[in-house]
Design a protein around this nucleic acid. Structure first.
Lengths: 341, 341
DNA sequence: AATAAATTCTAAATCGTTTAGGTATGTTTA
DNA sequence: TAAACATACCTAAACGATTTAGAATTTATT
């Protein structure tokens, strides 16, 4: 049976006290350089590693962040929204960079996650990642705040939700891409994506969309609005529901790339040519969007930057500061699906 | 400033000793039911949560698993192989189900991850997830084993690598899909995917491919082998390199769906029709494969099952058992890209 | 009524660190 | 030469739980 070396073992071998070992390993100037080197050598030889449980207990911190993923409960269990995954990647890397470990967990409504990480000292802070819909969790967020838990939420900064949040400028994204569609000649639209309080991000995109229509002098009824959640299936059936008067639509603005992928599939199955008969644009710039046929014009959220911002902001909170909410900029990615670029 | 309640606070209020509190909260029969209820009520009221650091330290375990993701270092940093992500999802859920937290971390060659989790008592066991290529890490795996660290590797069970592993039957997958291609009339092939020691999974698929060709009585030189790593770009250029004599190829067997997506893109760009001019099949059944044009025929690995198997196996190890390696079955997913089904 | 057994609780040791404070040395300063 | 000060180390007390051993109380048995 393997038995782990402790700082006492090292102390014994080095002929010093255990506290000196602890100090030496953390390069404290309170211990002589020679002694330090000797202790470190022995530590290495014994394959010694600081026990994080003991260390964390003593220091009352864990140098660990918890990432809580809130998935659209309607989605198939095994699939994860690619956009989240991209965020997950950048968050993982950003926290590693900062010297923090990352606990990942999927949540659903029933869990009382609001207490389970920081309260137990398993994490120093929590990152909440979901598609903007925290409406049902609002009271839990309040509780988090009340408990002075450090947490940050991915989503639109607004007053409705307690706590700090970071999100991309969905309004601007919806505005920009719609303006582009108009600028290349499209005049009538369909917006695919549920824009109610349960999807504040989709809502903002839709509002940006409408604003652009107005500001370009088009009549507001030049766009139609169809419900859809962020899945391919949902995009597919959204298009199906619009087939009867498909000729009256110049362009589809899909609230997410997944919706767009499904939408294009539906169009293809019904012999509607993209972009010749109708334009399609998406939102998120997920990895596949480059490889659809035709390649999808979309709005890119810089997930690298966003992940870093989330982690940085959270760490500031942990260090006792009160960092402000943040709105991240957004970029158009012009590809073939929208027609003449 | 928030100050956390400890078991002493509860003991004080309840008028019992702290040890009684500890027992009561863990439903020990050593404490009277009435006392238990009272203590639990007080705990709830004070919003008490067991400090995991203290608890773990005392119990010498962490009830946490660490997932180490090894990415093809050639891949863009921000992108993650969708297949891994799918595994990540199922592993996360499986460990949550088992009452374990999950630490996620991306690794690269330079890190000395081989010591960093279990040795520090941050995790009770480690899951290694990569595209089969652990060749360069073999000595690190040995070290893990030597240290009696609990770990499990995703990949082909073989004697070359130390430790237990679970993987899908790549040979069978390659065999099955090739046989299907032959059964619907294809006679000449190209295999896209580096099949050297750095990609044992691709290698096994290739070997299954060749076996099927032989067993169906076709000449072995009816297949060509082109190097590619698991990215769309790589698939794209692999196809480009074959363009000169594209007419001599009936079907492309891509070692992964990502390669297939890139390959189909390249074929489209060069006016080669799939599946009319040439068939294309992939491997992995990633989410997009259903939405490519045409939909991709591929080999599905049941990631749900695989994630559960990994976690279950690791937990057995943690509990002192010696579970065997496992080969998971594989399923053909027939869609349009391979031609007549 | 005395003894044994069962129940319920307490005290203290333990996990492996970190860190405040103390104690020898030797070196400088007035 | 004693006071003042570094230097290099050590002792011991946390941190907050779990758990062993044993004490106190109640209940059962003879």
């Amino acid at each position: 049976m393997k038995v782990k070396a402790t700082s006492f073992d090292i102390a014994h071998r080095a002929g010093v006290s255990q506290s000196t070992v602890s100090r030496a390993l953390r390069d404290s100037p309170l211990v002589n350089q020679e002694t330090r080197d000797k202790i470190k050598a022995i530590a290495q030889e014994l394959n010694y590693k600081v026990d994080k449980n003991a260390s964390n207990l003593r220091q009352q911190q864990s140098r660990t962040l918890a990432l809580l993923l809130f998935e659209d409960p309607t989605t198939d269990d095994s699939l994860i929204n690619p956009f989240f995954l991209s965020m997950l990647g950048s968050i993982t890397r950003a926290s590693a960079q900062a010297g923090y470990d990352l606990l990942v967990s999927f949540q659903n409504l029933s869990d009382d996650w609001h207490a389970d990480y920081e309260d137990t000292n398993k994490a120093d802070g929590i990152i909440l990642l979901g598609y903007g819909d925290y409406v049902d969790y609002r009271d839990k967020l309040s509780k988090l705040e009340e408990q002075e838990t450090h947490f940050i939420r991915w989503g639109a900064p607004d007053e409705e939700h307690p706590g700090v949040s970071i999100g991309c400028d969905n309004f601007q994204g919806g505005f920009d891409i719609t303006r582009h569609l108009i600028s290349i000649g499209h005049k009538t639209f369909a917006f695919l994506g549920g824009a109610d309080k349960h999807a504040p991000e989709f809502m903002a995109r839709y509002q940006g969309h409408c604003k652009a229509i107005k500001s370009e002098g088009l009549p507001l009824d030049s766009t139609r609005h169809v419900d859809a959640i962020s899945t391919e299936e949902s995009g597919y059936s959204a298009v199906e529901s619009l087939l009867p008067d498909i000729e009256s639509i110049n362009a589809f603005f899909c609230a997410s790339d997944l919706i767009a992928v499904g939408a294009m599939q539906a169009l293809r199955d019904n012999n509607v040519k993209v972009p010749d008969d109708v334009a399609v644009v998406g939102y998120d710039n997920i990895p596949v969007s480059r490889f659809t046929d035709p390649a999808l014009t979309t709005v890119a959220q810089d997930t690298m930057l966003a992940g870093e911002a989330l982690v940085k902001n959270l760490l500031l909170q942990i260090n006792g500061e009160k960092p402000p909410a943040q709105l991240m900029p957004v970029n158009l990615v012009l590809r073939k699906s929208c027609g003449r670029t």
